[in-house]
Structures are given as C-alpha cells and as structure tokens.
Design a binder for these strands. Structure first.
Length: 361
DNA sequence: CGCCACATGTAACAAGACAT
DNA sequence: ATGTCTTGTTACATGTGGCG
C-alpha cells in the first residue's frame, strides 16, 4: 500500500516560533508549563546556578528550557513514559531518527510474530480497531530498537500522536464514540482525530528531531520516586501534581495509564484492573495525590534538598495553600520570594486561580 | 499570470459539573 | 465509580478577487 504521507516532508516551524529564541515542545499534556516557562525563567535566571534537577519533569518543558540555557540538567519523573520524554529531550544530545529508521518503524516486519494486545484489550475503548492494530505493530517495532535514545524519540512521537487523537487528550473515560458522533461541534478537534496515526507520528518525529540539541553538558534523565534521587544540584525545581481545595488532585497515572502501558507492553496485562470500563491500572497510593499527606511530602522534599536553591510551582487555590508552602519553605530557607502569575487561563477550566512561583535561597 | 490585500475557514487551547 | 457533554477567542491557513 502506498504511503499517503510524504515521509520526506521537512519540519516546518510554527509561525511564531520562528522568532523565539528558545524552542518549546508542543504538547497536550496536563500541567505542561509551556505557556509559563518564559516567566519562570525571568524569575530564576539571575540565581547563579550551573546544575538543576527538574524533580517532577513531566513534559520536560522546564528542564529542556534550562538545557538550552546551558545548565546541566537532571530530569526525573515517576512515570516511565515521561522518563522516555526526558531521555529524548534532555539526556539525548545528538541522536535523531533517520527517514529509513522511521520507515522501518511504520512497516510490519515479516519475520516477527506480533501480539495484538491493544486490539484485544482496548476494543471500542479509545481507538478504532484499525488504529489499535497500528499501535500494536508500531509499539512492538519501537520496543525492539536497541539504542535507548532512538527508542525514546520514537516513544515521544507515539505518545504525542496518542494524545492528540483522544478527546480531551486523556484516557480517563471510554469515549471513542465522541470522535464519530454526528453532532454539531462548536469546538473540538475532529480534524485532528480523523488524521491518521501515521501522519501524526511523522509530524511529531519531525518535531522531536528538530528539538534535539546539545548544550555541551552531560544531562541525565531518571525514573525514580523523588525521594530516591541522589546527587547535589544547585537548583531543584518542584512542580508536583496539583490538589484542589476540595482535595481532588490530578492523578497522572489514571489520566495517562495508556501511555504507561505502551512502555510496559509485555507486562501491560498484569497492570490493568480488568473490572474497570476504561481498562486503567490498579490504583496505587501516591502520597502526592493525598490531601492529607501532600503538605508533609512538600516539607520532606524541602528538607531533602535544603542545600539547593528551591523553586516551586503551584496554584494559588490548592492544598497545601501558598501560605503553608511558604512557611514550610522558610524552615529551611532564609530568603523566600513568592511570584504570582496573573491572567493565566486554563483552556477548559473556568477558574480564575493563578499560578504561583516560589523561590527559596 | 504573479502578487497582494482582504475575507473566510479552521484548529487549538491544565477538566470538570452533573447525572446515574 | 463511571457516563455525558462541552467556551469562545485568537492565530494561523486557505480562498478570493482585483490589479498591473
């Protein structure tokens, strides 16, 4: 079958980015600091640090920004899928995927006996049968890449493709039908949903290949519980999940379990709670999602990294409150500054809360 | 036709209230 | 616990039509 998409098409910068000094990955991931990272940088650039730990790295936007500014960057995330993003963007200084390698990823290997785990497990849940089969093939091709950087680049493109094809860019509900419902849409991303996985994948390969950069430093990505990280860092950036006043927090493992499954393809089946309609993972007890424990975790983290400059991102209306975080920060830091970023509007949220940046020196 | 100005169309964007 | 439903502004993409 002839490929409908031009594999040789060059990556074209979005119009605005042509004038930006610093590159920023595009992503639909919740909590991404893509729209804030410029202002964060303005507030920390004069602190005089050479190394930084992005302790809750997520999309890697902040760590990647610091990398471009010549810092030695250490990235961490407890999700393995995010860890690969850190490997691709931050630890990787010069590996890219060639046209030939991408072509191979998109082609069925006649010598390999493919499993159909996604097609069987997620029928009618998130993607169409045809899309599920495509995912089964590509993820098993990616798995067999020997070079971890190439693997990470490919996973990056696969994750982004999976996200943009999902209504709300999440895996929290079984709602495949929303993509095909014949309703009048005043918003939504129907065009993006209808665009093929292959086309999205190619687009994001082009993006990640463009983003790969070498800042002359040995940068490193980890996949650890934040309290297991060893090392000395001039600055530690802390951007944990946000818990609202009602005690409802962003449970990333529940929102993005599908991506986490992709990087655990062989054991995915044992991670799924089959009783759930959306085939999510068994629940774990992440203290960062527990309104009774999160303040203590903040404080423990401040203590663990008390010798580093501490930079914290949080929201003005959460648990713990900004006042509580600030007073806990003062237990370990003499000079504490609090910056409020007003006029920050979340797209699907009507709340008028603001993002806050706290700096303890 | 080639170019430009302007008009129109389209995609994109931190989840959460409410019902069952 | 899970299913349903979903804003409105804005930047960019694409189309159109006039002009030399």
């Amino acid at each position: 079958m002839a490929r409908k998409y031009d594999i040789k098409k060059q990556f074209v910068l979005p119009f605005l980015e042509q004038f930006q000094e610093v590159r920023i990955p595009t992503t639909r991931y919740q909590g991404s600091k893509a729209k804030l990272v410029d202002r964060i940088w303005e507030n920390i650039k004069d602190l005089g640090f050479a190394s930084a730990l992005d302790a809750f790295g997520g999309t890697g936007v902040v760590g990647y920004y610091l990398k471009q500014h010549g810092k030695r960057v250490f990235y961490n995330d407890y999700l393995k899928s995010n860890y690969y993003i850190g490997v691709a963007l931050i630890e990787n200084n010069n590996i890219r995927l060639s046209e030939h390698e991408v072509e191979r990823l998109l082609t069925k290997d006649p010598k390999y006996d493919y499993r159909s785990f996604i097609a069987k497990t997620f029928k009618d849940v998130y993607y169409t049968d045809e899309e599920n089969q495509w995912l089964d093939m590509v993820v098993q091709n990616i798995e067999r890449l020997k070079n971890i950087y190439k693997k990470a680049l490919a996973y990056y493109a696969l994750f982004q493709a999976c996200l943009v094809k999902r209504p709300f860019n999440l895996f929290h509900r079984k709602n495949l039908h929303l993509r095909f419902a014949e309703v009048k849409r005043t918003f939504g991303n129907k065009a993006t949903w209808d665009k093929s996985f292959e086309e999205h994948f190619m687009d994001f390969i082009r993006e990640i290949n463009y983003l790969v950069c070498d800042n002359g430093k040995e940068n490193k990505a980890y996949n650890l519980d934040v309290f297991e990280i060893n090392g000395d860092f001039d600055l530690v950036y802390i951007d944990p999940p946000y818990t609202s006043l009602k005690g409802i927090s962003v449970d990333y493992k529940n929102f993005y379990h599908f991506l986490e499954g992709l990087v655990n393809y062989e054991k995915w089946g044992s991670m799924i709670d089959r009783r759930t309609i959306n085939k999510r993972f068994y629940r774990d007890n992440n203290p960062w999602n527990n309104k009774l424990k999160i303040r203590m975790k903040f404080r423990d983290l401040f203590e663990k990294f008390r010798d580093s400059i501490l930079v914290i991102s949080y929201r003005s209306d959460g648990i713990p409150s900004i006042q509580q975080i600030e007073s806990d920060l003062r237990l370990f830091k003499k000079r504490v500054r609090v910056h409020k970023f007003d006029n920050y509007k979340y797209v699907l949220s009507n709340s008028t809360t603001s993002e806050v940046l706290m700096i303890g020196e």
